[in-house]
């Protein structure tokens, strides 16, 4: 008798085996949430200082509004984690709209720059082409007219497609608060589902992509059941740096397989110092699989997601190596 794949089995995971301690992505499960915005106040400051003051004066009840493609939906469904009485439109602040490729070979992208401006930017295309991997697949074309990398990061979804990509690029976030600005490595921004290390009285100003130097290649890929318009069942953002046929650096960051995007130390260990080879890549992929701690939900089972981590990491590393000129 050939097997059948029971739907019941998927439900059993939900019923018994898996205890859902955190709600991974879904802002759409609350039946009482409704579909329209409740009352909000709207402010559109024109300086970082003014924006920070509004945020600080709001006692945690204000949220920055960039593209709004997550925030407006969350406010409509009354996501309890995103309860804002004031939205602060940050698109009129000059620093948040900058795209600046500097002499050192680094790139600054303001927190409010929409994705379409990023993937059409000549400096991005020339110097940081791999960021286009995620910038061009978040939502569809009209979403990319509004959505931002800054918003994707601050939204703190474990499934945020750009976050592993930013982590792989060693991006540093500049955050302004009442006590001035501070810099945070991007891998330290997300702390849990929809939780970040950026305080409610702070504002993400920009993301800095340091010059990766020669021999660098990166890639982000995700798995979705459709070909577009979907949330990653799992995603892998990777980068490698190759010198003399050896990996001198390697970073693997996974989406959708833990309460936050995770930078996999074991993958870096498996790569760094090793000759560029299928074996090293496979070991890094297996380390990614082992590091994942996903849940089962409507988008996939835990077991399936772990498996995908291996597949996606391997495929992404192969592309990154190719881009680094290593193959």
């Amino acid at each position: 008798m050939l097997p059948t794949i029971p739907y019941v089995r998927l439900r059993l995971h939900l019923n018994g085996i898996i205890d859902i301690k955190y709600d991974f992505f879904s802002v759409r499960t609350d039946n009482q949430g409704g579909s329209l915005l409740k009352w909000i106040d709207y402010q559109a400051p024109e300086s970082v200082a003014d924006a920070v003051k509004i945020l600080a004066d709001s006692n945690g009840n204000a949220r920055p509004l960039a593209g709004g493609t997550d925030l407006i939906v969350q406010l409509r469904v009354k996501d309890p984690r995103v309860n804002a009485e004031t939205v602060v439109d940050i698109k009129k602040i000059p620093e948040l709209n900058q795209m600046d490729y500097d002499k050192s070979g680094g790139l600054t992208i303001g927190a409010a720059v929409p994705l379409h401006l990023i993937y059409n930017n000549p400096d991005v295309i020339k110097h940081f082409p791999a960021i286009i991997d995620s910038a061009s697949l978040i939502g569809g074309t009209p979403i990319q007219g509004r959505a931002t990398l800054g918003g994707n990061l601050c939204n703190g979804a474990p499934s945020g497609d750009s976050i592993p990509n930013l982590v792989a690029h060693n991006v540093v976030a500049t955050v302004a608060g009442p006590n001035g600005t501070r810099e945070i490595p991007v891998e330290d921004v997300c702390t849990g589902p929809r939780q970040t290390s950026i305080d409610s009285n702070e504002l993400l100003v920009s993301l800095y992509f340091p010059n990766p130097g020669d021999g660098f290649g990166a890639n982000y890929i995700r798995f979705i059941p459709r070909n577009e318009m979907d949330i990653a069942v799992a995603g892998a953002g990777v980068s490698v740096k190759i010198s003399d046929g050896k990996f001198v650096d390697g970073r693997v960051c996974l989406a959708s397989v833990a309460p936050k995007p995770i930078l996999v130390e074991g993958s870096s260990k498996a790569l760094i110092g090793q000759p560029v080879s299928d074996e090293a890549i496979q070991k890094a992929a297996e380390a990614a699989r082992d590091a994942a701690s996903p849940i089962s939900d409507m988008r996939g089972t835990a077991e399936y997601r772990k498996h995908l981590c291996e597949v996606l990491t391997r495929r992404a590393l192969n592309t990154a190596v190719e881009r680094a000129g290593g193959k």
Binding site: L65, G67, G68, T69, D89, P142, I143, G145
Partner: peptide
């Protein structure tokens, strides 16, 4: 192009 449901009128 944008989806106008995800833009506030005031914006």
């Amino acid at each position: 192009i944008v989806t106008s449901c995800l833009v506030l009128g005031v914006e």
